[in-house]
Design a protein around this nucleic acid. Structure first.
Lengths: 343, 343
DNA sequence: ATTAGCTGCTAATACGCATTAGCAGTCAAG
DNA sequence: CTTGACTGCTAATGCGTATTAGCAGCTAAT
């Protein structure tokens, strides 16, 4: 059995004894054009439409209007494996929300390459299927970014990005100031010997944290320990912290903080009584860990929303796109206390 | 300045010094037609395409041919809000995987209706942008499902669905047998007084659990308590459990189980020594809760994969689509033990 | 009596692609 | 030297809608 052919405006027109153009005008003509179609004709057409249940084909509509209303979402790491899901989900929430408001659909370019080595320009360049695209990931390929910037395909990055052959349109979190604020808090609580546990590059997000941290040093604040390597044994970190007399430790990675806290507790030390701990960023599902670390909030959903809005502006108005850093508010937590007076 | 115009086959044709038709043929002409375009010309066109990053407009493609290798994913609840994310993410992972294998892109249908009231047919069914679509959500709108079934648009539901004007093509989990198996396990461990904490409808997934449970009753097994309301106070549930002498409680919701377990511990009771607990379904991130509940596994990724494969068959071969229930294997866990001998 | 302006439409075209019919040229067989 | 087959393309058309230009018929003003 062949599918019953879809009704077209042509069919409606014939039934109503008018032309296809008239049907289209009745459906969605400008007021000025509508004024020239008498009530009687309009009703006749409407009647036919109602009785046949005709609905305009959205594809043809978009075709005629020249709009696809599709936004691409490209992620450098694969988006859905559960480990990554935690990272991408909040962004996607914001993106989805705003896309819905703006009446766009989302094309997930999650499968563009297999495994780790995802390239925007790799395969048949699927992303141009969409009107524009959002790019997210912890680390970007600089060469690709440059091509994007120099090209005329509208895109917006989520997370701050260094210039790459020109300014990169992005919406990011202001990690530098978020970090600085936390350092100031520590200062106000009497801390003077700080430790920094985590790398200082090369990703922008990491650089910003370090920059904010370094900028707040001096004036009574001293960095007594900096462990750049990731995944050091918790015991070693703890030994170093105590050895160098740090009263507060700033962690780039929540996981490190969690492990160090556990190690400390095992040795009968407690946070923040014996030393304070601060995490530079908010972790998803904070509620699940049994200790609420002092940190700063990363407004991921808002980043997604604003990036989407910016992209739509670029697509619809040819806007150049800007660079937005959203404030990362401090999260009180329970791991930053007054500096312990050391003997 | 207006948005940068999209490249068209016409542009490519001019650059390569051929006609638009030739470009189209090079891209996806039938072998017989391709045979008549010499290697040299083909390569010249391909080169231009590669250097410009041209990709066919999916809308125009669908307009001309009726297919564009895009699968729509329609979710009743928004897909990414964190509460839902846990629910949808594993399905999406499977869908993504299979879509990639089959060389389809995924279009997330968002803008269809605002807020809770998501309707597939809301705005002149934009879902026709894709060649077919997967429908997921805890509860479906029956009227819409009927329209889908009666219509000629290919779709597949994830999760079992009752007939709606005809059989609904779906890939679901066999919750009934998953539940029954767990009840049998309890029986084997000497339990005879069971409690069921959770509703028995109206969603199919809920009905199936209850049906599987009810079917296993009798023959020495007695339902001594059934709490249908959701979100009761943990203390109340616990009181009821003990009051009615239940030795094992079957929970539809993991959250209830977690809360009851906590309440029990507070009163000095422990699971499974004092009573057993079984959760009817697998929770994502089981590793994060400090207790591993006995439950059955829901093969979400596999459901996503198979539903996608079925959808592609429907699209490409006009297949009617079937009804598949995947086995839900029991998860051992540590909360189901021998029945306590009661005084 | 010409013009201007209005009314009630319709014809024509564009949107970007896929696809079919067929044209102009070459080459070989008859 | 004609016919036929084959090669390497292109022109033309259709998909269903939105939109613009404009036609025919009428009225009213000059």
């Amino acid at each position: 059995m062949a599918a019953p052919k879809r009704l077209t405006q042509h069919d409606i027109a014939k039934l109503a004894g008018v032309s296809q153009a008239t049907v289209s005008l009745v459906l969605n003509g400008a007021p000025t054009a509508l004024a020239r179609i008498p009530q009687e004709t309009r009703e006749r057409v409407q009647q036919v439409i109602r009785s046949t249940g005709y609905v305009a084909d959205p594809i043809a509509r978009r075709m005629a209007k020249g709009l696809n209303r599709i936004l691409g979402v490209f992620t450098y790491e694969p988006a859905f494996p559960s480990a990554q899901a935690d990272f991408f989900t909040p962004f996607l929430l914001g993106i989805e929300e705003e896309a819905q408001i703006q009446n766009y659909d989302l094309l997930l370019l999650t499968g563009a390459g297999v495994g780790q080595d995802r390239k925007i320009f790799a395969d048949g360049n699927r992303l141009r299927i969409a009107d524009g695209c959002l790019v997210l990931g912890r680390e970007f390929d600089r060469t690709e970014l440059k091509r994007l910037v120099l090209g005329d395909y509208p895109f917006v990055a989520i997370g701050r990005r260094e210039d790459a052959g020109g300014p990169v349109p992005y919406v990011g979190g202001d990690y530098a100031n978020g970090t600085r604020t936390l350092v100031e808090k520590a200062r106000a609580l009497g801390h003077s010997k700080l430790a920094y546990i985590g790398p200082s590059g090369p990703a922008e997000s990491i650089v910003d944290r370090w920059d904010g941290f370094a900028a707040a040093l001096g004036d009574g604040l001293e960095l007594v320990l900096h462990i750049e390597t990731v995944g050091s044994a918790a015991g070693d970190i703890l030994d170093a912290l105590l050895g160098y007399g740090a009263t507060v430790a700033f962690f780039v990675e929540l996981a490190d903080a969690v492990r160090v806290e556990a190690a400390a507790r095992e040795r009968g030390l407690s946070i923040p009584e014996d030393f304070s701990a601060v995490v530079l960023g908010s972790h998803i599902r904070a509620e699940r860990s049994h200790m609420q670390f002092t940190a700063f909030d990363i407004p991921r959903e808002e980043m997604g929303r604003q990036a989407t809005a910016m992209l739509v502006r670029r697509i619809e108005s040819g806007d150049a796109g800007g660079q937005i850093l959203l404030t990362c508010e401090p999260v009180e937590g329970e791991t930053l206390g007054p500096a312990k007076r050391r003997t």
